[in-house]
Design a binder for these strands. Sequence first.
DNA 1: GATAGGGGTTCCAGTCACGGGAAGGTCAAG
DNA 2: CTTGACCTTCCCGTGACTGGAACCCCTATC
Lengths: 134, 134
Amino acid sequence: MNIGEVAQRSGLPAKTIRYYEEIGLVAPPRDANGYRAFRESDLHKLAFLGRARALGFTIEDCRALLALYEDHSRASADVKRIARLHLDRIDEKITELQAMRGTLSQLIEACAGDNRPDCPIMEDLAALPDHGSG
Amino acid sequence: MNIGEVAQRSGLPAKTIRYYEEIGLVAPPRDANGYRAFRESDLHKLAFLGRARALGFTIEDCRALLALYEDHSRASADVKRIARLHLDRIDEKITELQAMRGTLSQLIEACAGDNRPDCPIMEDLAALPDHGSG
DNA sequence: GATAGGGGTTCCAGTCACGGGAAGGTCAAG
DNA sequence: CTTGACCTTCCCGTGACTGGAACCCCTATC
């Protein structure tokens, strides 16, 4: 398979596939003309990577997961641990975003949104940070 | 004020303040020795930027907000519009993360997490993408 | 054999919002 | 005069790609 076909079947852009080769996630052999010659196993790895990335795993997580994917004597506990750590990161991010969301939506609701300059959003942003002297 | 004091009072790292100068968000004059000489107004701008960034606004949003901050004949509607667009982006991100969270937590729950290789997480990741022929 | 097009290849630069660290100038205190 | 804390600029690295230039390969057509 050339890169175009693999791109189509894995759902990844050709650029991304080349990048994954560069960082050592896949290592397709080359044809005599220099073209990458992807095997079915490469396609499966790339599809795996695409799915893992879609779930938000970092590239380094993906590298670890791919190693476990290839390791038929793996322990599912290892997979689960990686997934759980990632879930924790996601929860942190969600919490952070929801905090922003809370503040923002309050401010937006309080803002008249008319042609006058007075604006609770501006007032909030303009507040100097607390130096907490107590 | 030198950069150290402004950093402390604004809560921003000196590095970040220099970066904000570089991209034109603040323009403190210089002392004879080449040191940046921040005015109170610069401090206020920087504190404003810090707060806006903490709410997740992009630098370009910040640039626009700062212009409105300085514009005493602004319309609060303009502020509100920027904030609302940002809120929409936050909501998108939250939705995306919650989708990941949903899939991941299901998979994690279904995974035995023992020393056997069988693992629903791996099975999910290994699925080839649908080519949707119908 | 020339040409057009649709593959493929490499390499370089840019993204976003900084952070780290080197190499060097400045200032107040002892 | 030295120490040490501050300040300066400059350049590289981050994560995970994306865009584009310049070039090669292969097939089909005239």
